[in-house]
Computed example of a mutant assay.
Amino acid sequence: MKYLITGILLCAINFSLGDVESEFKKAKIEPDIIDKAPIEKIEVKYGKKVVDFGTELTPTEAHEIPEIHYKHEGGVLYTLVMTDPDAPRRGGYNREFRHWLVGNIPEENIAKGEILAEYVGPAPPKNTGKHRYVFLIYKQNQGAITFDERRLSTWDGSQRKRFSIKKFAEKYNLEGPIAGNFMVAEYDDNVPAYHKRLNL
């Protein structure tokens, strides 16, 4: 009986891990911006709204920094990114828009990480459809990294364009992504105010 329960648990774990990969492939995040999908899930919550592989939120609902949790190891540093691969619109050749980038995160304590790009929520332009907003976690095997990126504030909207998480990860020899999640959002009436704040 013990072996049967263990087998069922292992099957459930394998199924959930496979789920993450299959959801990323179904949404074409692999291969659009990463070569290999993660197998672990990042827990992302905007207040009571839980992000679960393609959950649709409005820009208004996702305006504030979300609560983030992921599987981590003691004493290890991580990098977190939230990126929009559909800027300015989905289809054709686009580069990503970096919405949030934090490095040197001790375990999962994002507040103690090094902010490379302050959080800005989704702000897809009018008539550009639903954009994918992808959360990815990378492991820093070499410990603390000296990032030579320009630090981006909320106002640096134009500097956030033409990003590539794949090139960023290669540049700093990051492992992964080891975990991920994503949501979708499209234009709402508050977007013009967000664009003004971003200097776009």
Rank of each mutant, 00 (worst) to 15 (best):
Ile5Lys: 12
Ile8Met: 11
Cys11Arg: 07
Ile13Tyr: 13
Asn14Ala: 13
Ser16Cys: 00
Ser16Glu: 00
Gly18Ala: 06
Glu21Leu: 06
Glu23Met: 10
Phe24Ala: 04
Pro31Cys: 09
Pro31Ala: 11
Pro31Ile: 12
Ile33Gly: 05
Ile34Val: 13
Ala37Glu: 06
Glu40Tyr: 14
Lys41Asn: 07
Glu43Ala: 15
Val44Ser: 04
Lys45Arg: 14
Lys45Trp: 05
Gly47Lys: 11
Val50Ile: 12
Leu57His: 07
His63Asn: 08
Glu67His: 14
His69Lys: 15
Tyr70Thr: 11
Lys71Leu: 08
Gly74Asn: 13
Gly75Asp: 02
Gly75Trp: 07
Leu77Tyr: 11
Leu80Asp: 02
Met82Val: 15
Pro85Lys: 03
Ala87Asn: 04
Ala87Lys: 02
Ala87Val: 09
Pro88Tyr: 00
Arg89Ala: 11
Arg95Cys: 05
Glu96Ala: 15
Leu101Ser: 03
Asn104Pro: 02
Glu107Thr: 11
Asn109Thr: 15
Asn109Cys: 04
Lys112Asn: 10
Gly113Pro: 00
Glu114Ile: 02
Ile115Asn: 04
Tyr119Leu: 02
Val120Ala: 03
Pro125Met: 08
Thr128Phe: 03
Lys130Trp: 08
Arg132Thr: 04
Arg132Tyr: 13
Phe135Gln: 14
Leu136Thr: 09
Tyr138Asn: 02
Asn141Val: 06
Ile145Val: 11
Leu152Pro: 00
Ser153Val: 06
Ser153Pro: 00
Ser158Tyr: 12
Arg160Val: 11
Glu170Trp: 09
Asn173Leu: 06
Asn173Lys: 14
Asn173Asp: 09
Gly176Val: 01
Ile178Leu: 08
Ala179Met: 05
Ala179His: 00
Val184Arg: 09
Ala185Gln: 08
Asp189Arg: 15
Asp189Ser: 14
Pro192Asp: 01
Lys196Gln: 09
Lys196Ala: 07
Arg197Tyr: 10
Arg197Asn: 11
